[in-house]
Design a protein around this nucleic acid. Structure first.
Lengths: 152, 152
DNA sequence: CATGATGGTTTCAATCCGCAACTCATCGGG
DNA sequence: CCCGATGAGTTGCGGATTGAAACCATCATG
């Protein structure tokens, strides 16, 4: 994680031109994305995050702070009286496709065939279909049919 | 990263039921996904990965080994005589949507408006469109319209 | 044979992480 | 008012992970 010099929002990226690298600078550690995952599934309080992830409390403190500092979470005092809560901002909610693709890759490649795992379902309880990248012309895209154009 | 007890392929996950957590156990560190990113963009040799990522050599050694051990990369001696090369397996290539969504999030949320960044384009040089999760009925899905169903 | 590239290994210092213990502040009873 | 239970952290510490730089072995070339 690049050091935040305090004062400037985000100083030194590992690879300033690459959006992938920048994103990983913000959430590319062991825990941040699991916190976001749980936030998407309804966790709001410190202890709830702690219970769900099993992360050490000091690390959780740090992650919540960083996610808040980076604008993925917002901290507010709960409407019902006297308690803190952390809720996703728009930027945080926008990580949904990232979490989803991580989930879908995991379902396919990190479980033995037939091994049970949790599933993401929509309102009707229907499993969410596989997300497939397509071009403007509707063709499927993958690593072989695309490439990075360096910033000019 | 959970310790590999040597002998069994993948012993202790941080959260065995959750595909997101399992995926992050495999590639959820600062560097693995950048290595995969560069592999997708044509890198094959140790030095090429080192040059592109700027990662420390010992860590690169470790990551290449782990990615290979987990079946995301395959190591072979290059066709042209005496050189190693690392190429993506099918499982590795399947991370394409993950890298893509990370990229798209970064483009939108980790750059100042108007700030230049590299772009992913298809064969024709057309920028790859935003990936949007939809349900079977074609409706847009996000964190609010979906939830995780625990494994039964 | 000297030089350079490739693919590492070793060493050592700096970080990071997990655990356990401690601190506050607040609430709900009794 | 006092007691204990939560909630939300903070602090200290030992062990694991990382990063920078140096070292090493093999091959190819001039």
């Amino acid at each position: 994680m690049p050091r935040t010099t305090e004062g400037s929002p985000e100083p030194d990226w590992t690879d300033p031109d690459c959006p992938v690298a920048r994103t990983l600078d913000l959430v590319g550690d062991r825990w941040s994305l699991l916190v976001v995952r749980d936030a998407m599934d309804g966790a709001r309080s410190f202890t709830e995050f702690q219970r769900r992830t099993g992360i050490a409390r000091n690390i959780l403190t740090d992650r919540l702070r960083k996610l808040t500092a980076h604008g993925l979470l917002a901290q507010r005092t709960a409407p019902s009286g006297r308690r803190q809560e952390y809720v996703l901002t728009n930027a945080g909610r926008a990580l949904f496709p990232v979490i989803l693709t991580l989930r879908q890759w995991g379902e396919r490649h990190a479980f033995a065939p037939g091994e049970p795992h949790s599933t993401l379902v929509d309102r009707h309880g229907t499993p969410v279909p596989e997300l497939a990248p397509t071009g403007t012309d509707g063709t499927l895209l993958d690593a072989d049919t695309t490439h990075v154009r360096k910033t000019r």
